[in-house]
Design a protein around this nucleic acid. Structure first.
Lengths: 240, 240
DNA sequence: GCAATAGTGTCTTTTAGACAGTATGGG
DNA sequence: CCCATACTGTCTAAAAGACACTATTGC
């Protein structure tokens, strides 16, 4: 660093410049009882107090080294969940999304098993899974409705060419369950045979050897994920 | 808005909270003389003065209604370019990416024709196209090296399943030129026949009827883009 | 004519869709 | 046995890879 840059920094004061707000939020999605769900928390403070909102918060300059750290930390705080992976969804910023002023949020998203935060949800009533189909009837804080839609769209795309969707399920799971996650995301049925072929050729799932007895009919094979699951991409998409 | 939220806002002062820095940057890429290039500007002020950097700046709370407005405005300011479309690449934030403090930048990216900012580049010497292969030899400001890599990777993916790549070329262009953009992005040769079939089935390009005479050999048909070009996706990827 | 580049014909390979068939459990 | 559900065999269709072929220019 040059001498003059050092002296520039000595006299630099961020507070001399216009202030913008920066937060992080997380869109956690799951599959349960044949529905896609999103995890929301009830806001305990102003603004939008009492509204349901995405779990999130502000950067803690001491605790957070990166944006992702902030997303993980506030998620853990508010919902008790620490997902094994999380991906950035995008930044949403505008003059009017927050009444406090010009505000930006960096949204992260992940699929997690329904039960992953069961303990926390049972103990406190301020975080809860909601059917994504029923969000329209809910009053969501800020532009969180739109952010959730972006998260769903992200995974709708991924369902066409990947199997990350398995992260929405508790292991082991049946092919029927995984196929339903895809079907709900892309909004149409998928041929069982085609789906199985993709899974076999991908190599990112393995049979456990166990089977799961359903109420009626032949028991289903159970599967677990294998390491490459998050990154594997098919060269050909399912017809969207 | 409830009465109590109003009184909360009346006493709210953003300056009472820790301050973070938020900027926007743009990764503009193009194709020229069989090379991929990125547009950089020389920093005129501290920090990293004299280093080459992505064109960008801070939010102007009066002028910018959204993040994208800020990206477009600073791009226009610094390079004279106003691309017809731009897409968000992601947010890059950490405690140490900027010596001024905990800083985040929201990066945008686009492909534009080489000549789109020729006038500006000719008149001032502080903005310039650089070969993406030669960035390692250049001292880039902040984490801009990494952001450029993310931009290239974004379009490498898109080259596998879309034709947005045409936005890197001045119209009309030949299929050879468009194919070279793809080949440079994905790092391998593509069969001419396969490429042509994709273009014909997509319907997002049209022949102009004109031909372009090359130094030697048969003249090449010229093409223009059609409206759907930015959104069209093939169901099957080129083998990456 | 030749060299060089643009564009085509066509065979093979891959992989998804369709759908009928078989397998395996509970009554 | 029947029913319901899981799984498989196999044909077809779509589209990419490979590569040899023809077309059109300048010299």
């Amino acid at each position: 660093m040059s001498e003059s840059e050092q002296s520039f920094l000595n006299t630099y004061n961020a507070a001399d410049y216009p202030i913008v707000l920066l937060s992080v939020d997380a869109v956690l999605l799951t599959y349960h009882e044949d529905r896609l769900k999103v995890l929301l928390v009830e806001r305990a403070s102003h603004p939008a107090i009492g509204c349901w909102a995405l779990p999130g918060g502000f950067i803690d300059q001491r605790a957070d080294n990166q944006l992702e750290d902030a997303a993980m930390r506030s998620l853990k705080n508010k919902t008790g969940v620490a997902p094994p992976y999380i991906e950035q969804l995008g930044a949403f910023g505008s003059a009017d999304r927050d009444p406090r002023g010009w505000s930006t949020t960096v949204a992260y998203t992940a699929l997690i098993p329904y039960a992953a935060c069961a303990a926390h949800i049972d103990s406190v009533s301020d975080s809860q899974w909601f059917d994504v189909d029923r969000l329209k009837t809910l009053k969501l804080a800020f532009d969180h409705q739109r952010i959730i839609e972006a998260g769903i769209e992200r995974f709708r795309q991924k369902a066409l060419y990947s199997l990350v969707t398995a992260r929405a399920l508790a292991e082991p799971f049946t092919l029927y369950e995984l196929r339903r996650v895809h079907e709900l995301l892309i909004g149409k049925t998928i041929q069982r045979k085609s789906f199985l072929r993709r899974i076999e050729s991908s190599g990112v799932l393995k049979e456990t050897g166990e089977t799961k007895v359903i109420d009626k009919g032949r028991p289903a094979m159970l599967y677990k994920t294998r390491p490459g699951i998050d990154d594997y991409r098919f060269v050909r998409n399912i017809d969207g």
